[in-house]
Amino acid sequence: MSVLGETSIERFLSDYWQKKPLIIRNAFPGIESPVSVDELAGLACEEAVESRLVFETENDQPWQLHNGPFEESYLRSLPDRDWTLLVQGLDHWVPEAAELLEHFRFVPNWRLDDIMASFAPVGGSVGPHFDRYDVFLLQTIGQRRWKIGGVHDNTSPRVEGTPLHILADFETQEEAVLNPGDMLYLPPGVAHWGIAEDDCMTLSIGFRTPSHADVVTGVADSVADSPALDRQLEDPAPALQDNPGRISDSQIKELQSILEKALQNPDAIASWFGQAMTEPGHEGIVEPPEDPMDATTLQELVAEGNPLVWNEGSRFSFYDLPDDGGRLLFVDGQRFRLTGNATGIAAVLCAGRHPDMGALTDYMREPALADLVVSLVNQGSLYPEDDEGEEDDGA
C-alpha cells in the first residue's frame, strides 16, 4: 500500500494528477506529527525561517497577513480562534519532515518543492483560494474541514482590502473533514478552503511548476553567453525597399533562424532546466561543512557504517543526453557531466534521500567518482550519518 491508499500510482497519475481532487483516507496510518505545536512556534521565531500569520479579521479588515519572525510573547498572546500560523520549508529544518517526501517520489524529484506546516485553533483558516501548483494536504493533528470548489484562474474576482489572494466567489462542490493520517490531493487551479474544527496541524506537500515564461527567459539567459552567439546580426539578402521604414520578412526569418538554432540545443536546455529545478529553495540550508572532507576520510567513515544522506534541503536529478552523449547530474544547482560506466552513479544518488550505500561504495572505488561524492559532501548536499542516524560531527 502506498500513500495513495487503494488508488494505484498508475491510476493516480492517469486519472487524478493535474486533473481532479482525491481524498485519501488513512494515507499515513498512525501518523505522528514530525513537529509539535510548540516546536512549530519556535521555528516561527527564527530569523532564517519563513513564517506568516493569517487572521480572518483584524481591525475590521478581512484576511490580514503578518510576516515573521515573531516574538514568543506575541505568539502566546494570540486569541483562542480564527488565526493560522504558517511555516514554510519545514522539511529543511526538521529531518522527520524531510523523510515524508520520500513517499512522494512517484513524481520526478525536480517537481517536489517543500513542506509547509499550517497550525490553527478552531475556526482558523487562510480563506478560500487556489494554488498554481499541485499539493497534497496531510492532516497530522486534530481535524480540518475542507471545502472544495471549482477551477479558478487569475481572472477570478478577489476579496478587496487584503494582501492575500482570497476568492470573492467561492462555491463549495465537495466537503470533507480530514482526521490525522488523512490526505487531500488538489491539482493546480482548484479552489479550496480549509477550516480548523479544533487545534489542528496540516502539512502541505507542494510541487514546483515553472511557468512558460520562466522556461523561455531561463533558457534564453542560459544560452546567451554561448560563443556561437558572439556575432552581430547580419543582412543575408539586402534589397531595395519601397520604404526605408519597412522591416522585411527576410529579416524576421533570419531572427527566427537565430532563435531556433540557439534554443534547439538539448544540452543547453537540459543544463538550464536541471540547474534551475535543483536550485535550493531557501538560502542557508545547503551549506558547506565546517571541516572539508577528503576522499580517504570519507571512505573510512562509510566503511565504518556511516551511510550518506541528502541534506534536508537538497535536490538531485539527472538527464541522459541524446546519442549516448553521457549523463548530466544536477545537485543543488550544480551540474556534473558523466560518461561511460560512471553514468550509473547518478541513478544511485538520485533514487532517494538515502542512497544505496553498497552500490555507491562500488562506484567510489573509482578515484574520480570518489572525488565527485566528496565534492557533494563539501558543498553540503550530502552528509554522513552515524549508526544512530544522526549527522556526523564532521559534517
Rank of each mutant, 00 (worst) to 15 (best):
L100S: 08
M116C: 03
I115N: 03
G127V: 10
F119H: 13
S125C: 09
L112D: 01
P128A: 15
F104W: 11
R111N: 01
M116Q: 02
V126N: 07
M116W: 05
V107E: 06
V107H: 08
P128Q: 10
V122Q: 15
H103D: 13
G127S: 12
V126L: 08
F104Y: 14
F104S: 00
P108V: 12
E102N: 15
S125D: 04
N109D: 08
V107Y: 08
H103T: 07
D113S: 13
M116V: 08
E102L: 09
L100K: 11
E102P: 02
G124I: 06
H103E: 14
M116F: 07
V126C: 15
F104L: 13
G127P: 03
N109K: 10
H129D: 13
P128F: 09
V107N: 02
D114R: 03
W110I: 02
G127H: 13
F106S: 04
F106H: 08
E99Q: 14
E99C: 07
M116H: 02
V126Y: 10
N109Q: 12
W110K: 02
S125K: 05
A117S: 14
D113Y: 06
L101H: 11
H103V: 03
I115Q: 01
R111T: 04
S118M: 13
F106I: 10
H103C: 10
A120W: 03
P128N: 12
S125H: 09
I115A: 03
S125V: 01
N109Y: 10
F104D: 00
A120K: 05
D113H: 07
G123E: 06
F119I: 05
E99K: 14
D113V: 08
A117C: 10
V122E: 15
R111C: 02
G124P: 01
G123N: 11
L100P: 05
D114W: 06
P128E: 08
M116E: 02
F104N: 00
L112P: 00
H103M: 11
I115G: 02
E99Y: 11
R105L: 09
R111G: 00
I115Y: 07
D114G: 04
S118V: 15
R111F: 04
P108S: 13
L100A: 10
F119L: 01
N109T: 10
H129I: 11
A120G: 12
F106P: 03
L112Y: 06
N109V: 09
H129Q: 14
L101Q: 13
L112C: 07
V122K: 15
P121C: 10
P108M: 13
W110P: 00
L100E: 08
H129S: 14
M116L: 11
L112Q: 08
S118D: 04
E102S: 15
W110S: 05
V126W: 05
F104Q: 01
G127I: 08
R105Q: 13
L100Y: 10
R111S: 02
G123P: 05
P128C: 10
M116G: 01
F106W: 11
I115M: 07
H103I: 00
V107P: 01
L112A: 06
R111W: 03
F106C: 07
A120T: 07
F119A: 01
F119Y: 15
F119K: 01
F106M: 09
P108H: 11
G124Y: 05
F106R: 05
V122Y: 09
F104A: 02
E102F: 12
R111Q: 13
F119P: 00
F106K: 06
P121T: 11
E99I: 11
R105H: 10
H129K: 14
G124F: 03
